[in-house]
Design a protein around this nucleic acid. Sequence first.
DNA 1: TCCGTTTTCGCGCCCTCA
DNA 2: TGAGGGCGCGAAAACGGA
Lengths: 233, 233
Amino acid sequence: MNDSPNLRYPLQDRNKKLINLSRQVLEYVRSTDKTTGNQIAREIIHGFPNESFDSEFKNIQRRVYDALNVLHALSIISKNRNEIKYRGLVDKEDLSNLHEKISEKKKIIEAKRMCLGENVMQFVALHKLIRRNQVIKKNADVVELPCLVVYGETKANMQFFDDSMMISSLSPFTILSDCHLLAKMNLHKFTKMEISEHFPQEIFNLLDKSCMRTDESSEEYQKEVFIKNNIYN
Amino acid sequence: MNDSPNLRYPLQDRNKKLINLSRQVLEYVRSTDKTTGNQIAREIIHGFPNESFDSEFKNIQRRVYDALNVLHALSIISKNRNEIKYRGLVDKEDLSNLHEKISEKKKIIEAKRMCLGENVMQFVALHKLIRRNQVIKKNADVVELPCLVVYGETKANMQFFDDSMMISSLSPFTILSDCHLLAKMNLHKFTKMEISEHFPQEIFNLLDKSCMRTDESSEEYQKEVFIKNNIYN
DNA sequence: TCCGTTTTCGCGCCCTCA
DNA sequence: TGAGGGCGCGAAAACGGA
């Protein structure tokens, strides 16, 4: 009379059938790229203590379906017809690694894009410098490249050697290199026209505002002031 | 005779009971911090077309338990007694964002550490320079800071102004600034002793190999060769 | 297209335990 | 006593031929 039907397994496990099964199902599905509900069930009874009856198999199988459905609802697996594939328990590591990589790549792309912008600027500015040098006949005002400007509060000391020089100073000094110089000469401000002169139209898809330092206003009058007055701006 | 029992809802839905339910369960559990199986079931029938019988409720409830168990198995929810809490579907976005941030911060720390290393080097090297300048009485050989060395294949042109100078050249030139110069003078190689002289012992926990450029070998003899011969190494 | 299998799974009875 | 959950019947779908 008191003979309860389910004494064959310990209380602990008896009450957790679906839970344990779900875990096993997940684990199994995870371990193989592709499987079926039936196969999972077979795999699971396979790891059972002693021989199991057909009825037990049927039961397991029935539960496997329950688990699979919930897994499916969470997109943890994908099912089409009777083929089940593991899609990832949002596989913690994997996913975050992936996201990380994506954002890293994006940063690299952005950096390259900025770099491209800089180079385009540089290119156009240099072309303008060449043209300027050709126009200006007074040799003294021709600016050769490479070139740099050093300035500070006090005059610097210098020592010369065959093919090098050493400059040192008691006060801090500032160095303007080629590109700074071009900027000082206002050669870095230009119109879209001037860019189009050298590059295909598509370049503008890559040069966004942050790259552009064009200035449509007249600049002619500023071009030559550099060497005399414009050094400190 | 042919009267099938479940024609009251469309075939589509009839076939996906557990799946749909799981989704709803997940959604609901997610939306409230704490709930019970019973409450979930009530919430779910609540959103049903027309009035639903008690039997329907019982059925839903039974299914909710199935779904909850699987969710529990995946640690997506936690249950104790009849209280259910959402633990997070490893909340995709959140988690990966977190990981991303962590690795970003790590990079920043690493950069700062490198920077610290560089500064320590710099500091020690500068101290050595000061000492050197004090020892050397010949004024010409004293190196003042800031200071830089410019060298190239051909002699550069120079124009001088009140407090600045412009250097330009037809061939590329290389600039060595303070720190390069210190390196050329071999002032950047030193022993742990020399670091300990200025910093607490703990500094070594932050300076790993990649920061250290110490060189235990004798260096005395190299110290003065810089200005004469050592410029091109 | 019709039919026997297989695969799925809705459903709810009934037992347990707190 | 009610929440929780095992279990399995039998009906749908899907499939594989013939």
